[in-house]
């Protein structure tokens, strides 16, 4: 059963305990090292996170994810090699948010991915998205990344 409203064992450094966090844990049938290959670059992320990933997975890099007819602007906040990837993203509508993906080993051939997602405004970034901003407008991806960067 999925659960939310959870306290985090190791929350994102900028996350405050909040009711509005989404948290998921998923046990994976491979080692943490192997699982990291699905997080460490665009090719790996494209196998599960989105249909198209245009992103260099390195701190400070900016790019886009396309999933179906939705495109997200994304900013890599931090990378802890083999263990954690932190992103900020926004789809052009709704809430821009911060995403933490943390891998932990569970024995030799199994691992667990812990996902947390939290709206940026919860961590004190109400200016993150101008009200008039639309990702479908011309040049909006750049504007979106600037807006995400403002919240850093």
């Amino acid at each position: 059963m999925p659960h939310v409203h959870d306290d985090h064992d190791e929350p994102h450094p900028s996350m405050k305990p909040a009711e509005e966090a989404v948290r998921r844990e998923r046990d994976l049938p491979c080692s943490a090292d192997d699982a990291w290959s699905l997080l460490r670059d665009a090719e790996g992320l494209e196998r599960w996170l989105a249909d198209e990933v245009d992103l260099v997975v390195a701190p400070g890099e900016e790019g886009t994810l396309r999933d179906g007819d939705e495109t997200r602007v994304v900013l890599v906040e931090s990378v802890d090699e083999g263990r954690r990837l932190s992103l900020r993203w926004w789809s052009g509508e709704g809430e821009p948010s911060v995403v933490d993906l943390t891998l932990e080993p569970v024995g030799d051939d199994a691992s667990r991915l812990v996902v947390t997602e939290l709206p940026l405004r919860i961590i004190g970034a109400p200016q993150a998205v101008p009200a008039s901003w639309s990702i479908t407008d011309g040049g909006s991806a750049t504007n979106g990344l600037q807006a995400l960067a403002l919240a850093r």
Binding site: R24, R26, D27, L28, P29, D34, L38, R47, W48
Partner: peptide, 8 residues
């Protein structure tokens, strides 16, 4: 995560 589990 369903997709990730399959890929893993």
């Amino acid at each position: 995560l369903d997709r990730l589990e399959r890929e893993a």
